[in-house]
Simulated scan of single mutants.
Amino acid sequence: MNIIKLNAIDSTNSYLKQLAKETQLQDETVVVTNKQLSGRGQMGNGWSSREGQSLTFSIFKVFNGLLAERQFAISMAVSLGIAAAMNELNIPNISIKWPNDILSAKRKIGGILIENVLEGNFVKQAVIGIGINVNETHFLKLPQAGSLKLATGKTFQLDEVRQIILKSVFDNLEMLSQNDFLEMKQLYENHLFQKEKVSVFETPTASHFNGIIKGVSEIGELLVDTENQGFRKFQLKEVKLIF
């Protein structure tokens, strides 16, 4: 593991992507920053973090033989790796909100942004951004946000938390193969927030409908048994879970 530590930067993902274009990066290179100025999340959302109270870092990972059609396996592996790390840290009620938000007792404590580079039918490499709310206790206008400290009442050492997460995530990424895919998918579904419960969903046009999450497809679509339209598959920008 090669760790690059920076004091402040706009986005660890953007920095690592540019670095990968300019140099021959070592597999499992990690970029860590104390202060991220323009963090990015899924679907163009921002990711705000407070200096000295949260973790923001990005991972460069090389893949061999991972089919592009199964690239969602990376998201599952990273999500499950963070979930396992949270369990090791005794953070209660951990679940994964599709596709890869990490929750503790229905509050978001972590987010993931994965940007893959494809070569033919395979994933060549990925830059994986991870943000974890560790010791924050106040979130302005973010009622669903949480942190490790709010979940446990304890103050955590950032370096220790990061090392536990990195080990767990890298262990999971090493297990990615065709043989492990279905087993990993089952484990991911077991962690899905609101699985088998009636939930409210919102479409891009702001309409709402009820449905029950049943799992995910092999390409990462959310499988929902809807109240009025039967069984449907949704991609990332097609539906939002309201909770």
Rank of each mutant, 00 (worst) to 15 (best):
Leu80Arg: 03
Asn90Ala: 14
Leu182Gly: 00
Lys197Val: 06
Glu218Lys: 04
Val134Tyr: 10
Ser48Gly: 13
Gly220Glu: 07
Trp47Val: 04
Glu189Ala: 00
Leu173Met: 14
Ala84Pro: 00
Phe234Leu: 02
Phe234Lys: 03
Glu51Lys: 12
Leu192Val: 03
Thr152Ala: 05
Ile114Trp: 12
Gln18Val: 00
Ala68Glu: 09
Lys108Thr: 07
Ser49Val: 04
Ala68Gln: 08
Ala20Tyr: 02
Lys21Asp: 13
Thr226Cys: 06
Lys108Met: 08
Leu66Val: 04
Phe181Asp: 04
Phe209Ala: 07
Ile4Thr: 06
Thr12Lys: 10
Val161Arg: 08
Arg162Asn: 04
Asn172Gly: 12
Leu19Lys: 14
Gln163Trp: 05
Ser217Leu: 02
Ala8Tyr: 12
Arg232Lys: 15
Thr203Gln: 10
Gln53Phe: 14
Ala145Cys: 05
Met43Asn: 10
Gln42Thr: 09
Glu227Cys: 01
Leu192Gly: 01
Ser104Ile: 08
Lys5Gly: 00
Phe63Arg: 01
Val239Leu: 14
Glu218Ile: 15
Glu115Phe: 10
Met43Gly: 00
Ser75Val: 08
Lys124Gly: 01
Gly131Leu: 11
Gln71Tyr: 00
Arg162His: 02
Leu142Cys: 01
Leu187Asn: 00
His138Trp: 03
Asp101Phe: 05
Ile3Glu: 14
Glu183Val: 00
Asp27Gln: 02
Asn45Lys: 15
